[in-house]
């Protein structure tokens, strides 16, 4: 069965690249452009994994993550936070609590990223 991945990213170009690459690798991909939208979509569509940006308008990724984990339907979904190394400090706590994994955007190729997603969903 095809796995469902939600991409929450405000940068439309980055989102497009991610969505396309994931689709090419046989994932069902849904997208959202901020935390608010991401939270609603995640609860409604129940994805297997969320790729989550941190710095976004309306609602940032960290707020969305915390809200998601408060909801019954959002406790189990795997979350990979996509961050800039500058924002690492912000999510360190979330990572320590084990509520997400993370990848530093500029340190990873799209190929590696897709590879990671596959590994997570095995």
């Amino acid at each position: 069965m095809q796995k469902k991945v939600l991409v929450v990213e405000d940068d439309s170009k980055m989102r497009r690249v991610l969505v396309d690459e994931l689709k090419k690798n046989n994932f069902v991909v849904i997208e959202a452009e901020n935390g608010q939208e991401g939270l609603e979509t995640a609860l409604k569509d129940q994805p297997d994994l969320i790729l989550l940006d941190i710095t976004m308008p309306v609602m940032d990724g960290l707020t969305m993550l915390n809200k998601l984990r408060e909801e019954e339907g959002g406790k189990k979904v795997q979350v990979i936070v996509l961050t800039n190394s500058g924002d690492l400090g912000k999510i360190a706590e979330a990572v320590e609590r084990g509520i997400c994994s993370y990848l530093v955007k500029s340190d990873i190729t799209t190929e590696d990223l897709v590879g990671r997603v596959k590994k997570f969903l095995e």
Partner: peptide
């Protein structure tokens, strides 16, 4: 200024790099 650089410079550059790579 630093956080401005993060968003205004780094993100688009990262996009260009990733797209050209694809």
């Amino acid at each position: 200024f630093t956080s401005m650089m993060v968003h205004e410079l780094r993100s688009p550059l990262d996009n260009i790099k990733k797209i050209s790579e694809v």
